[in-house]
Each structure stands twice: as C-alpha cells, then as structure tokens.
C-alpha cells in the first residue's frame, strides 16, 4: 500500500470529518482548516480497526437523489403519523411486525436502509436476523403488511442497490 493509502485509509471519511469540523467552527480561517485536516487524518487512523473495509460506492451522485426522496418521505411520514396519533383510537390501531428479506449485503447499505426505515412512514426497524438476510420492522398501523414490504423494497432498497454494488 502506498504512503498516501496508509495515511488516508478512508479518504471520504477524512473529507467528511474536516468538513464537519469547519461547519462546527461556523467560519473558515487557516487555523480552523488546519485543525480540521489534522482531525480528518488522525481520527480514521485511530479508529482504523472499526472500519476494516472501505465501502465501495458505485454511484455517488445517486446518493443526492436518494437523500431527496427520503427527505420528501419524512415530511409525508410526519403528517401521516400525526394524523394517526390525533384521530385513531388505540383500539383501532393495527400495529404489527413485518419481515423484509434483504438483497443488500454491504453493512453500510443495510445500516442506511435500517435508518431510512426508522425515519419514514410509520415504520421502525427493530432487529436484524442472525445471517444478516432479513430486517425486522415494526409498523405503527397497517392494513396491508405485504404492501409495506413491497414499497420499502421498491422505493429504498432498489435505489441503495444502485449506489452500493
């Protein structure tokens, strides 16, 4: 491995850390930037054991599209959940657990899918199976569990499969 490769095992993580530091400082001057770069190099090196593989991104630009889709769904989700909370009696709620069989294999992709599910309409991801092949999701209220699974697979998993190989 080259010197740059050894110093920067995760270039994207280093870039993110530096950027977050500059944003935290709420201003850009030489000192802030320098400290940000030092942190961006030091933290990935110190935590290298927790990141054994570098996640491969096939389509980084699709991330932006995915983010927008999720952001929109979060707005819709808020209104839906607010409506359920305010208008439905507890006796009329149909909370249920559903199982989502996963085609994703990259840990980062599964983590993103689980996070997305928690932030979007009436669903909270609750557990992962032993073999990492299915996700346990709790629905606040659904009449059609199979439809929820199909929707999650179509809307989020299909997009994540294009981003992560």
């Amino acid at each position: 491995m080259s010197l740059v490769g050894r110093l920067l095992p995760h270039p994207l993580l280093s870039l993110t850390l530096t950027l977050v530091w500059v944003l935290l400082a709420n201003g850009l001057d030489a000192g802030t930037l320098l400290l940000g770069i030092v942190l961006g190099i030091a933290i990935p090196l110190l935590t290298r054991r927790f990141w054994p593989d570098r996640p491969k991104l096939r389509n980084p630009l699709r991330m932006a599209e995915y983010g927008l889709v999720v952001l929109w769904d979060i707005c819709v989700a808020n209104v839906q959940v607010a409506w359920i909370i305010l208008t439905k009696r507890n006796a009329d709620l149909r909370p249920t657990f559903i199982v989502i069989p996963l085609q994703l294999t990259a840990p980062e992709a599964i983590a993103m899918l689980a996070g997305t599910i928690t932030m979007t309409p009436g669903t909270v991801s609750s557990d992962l199976s032993d073999d990492g092949g299915s996700l346990l999701v709790h629905c606040l209220h659904t009449e059609d569990p199979a439809g929820v699974v199909a929707n999650i697979k179509r809307r989020y998993e299909a997009r994540l499969r294009e981003i992560f190989p």
Binding site: I74, V81, I85, N90, T118, P121, S126
Partner: peptide, 27 residues
C-alpha cells in the same frame, strides 16, 4: 406537541417509539 401527545397516548413501547422518531423530526 403531537410527538409528545403520541408518547402519552399510544398503548405500548413499540408503538410509542414511533412518536419521537417521526412526529418530532419535522418539528
């Protein structure tokens, strides 16, 4: 406010989890 109402009103832990993770993000 709706998130807090949900936390009070919903019947058990799993359904209560939905209120703070969603109704509050838009808030």
């Amino acid at each position: 406010l709706v998130g807090s109402v949900g936390l009070l009103k919903l019947p058990d832990l799993m359904t209560r989890l939905h209120a703070p993770t969603k109704a509050t993000t838009l808030g």
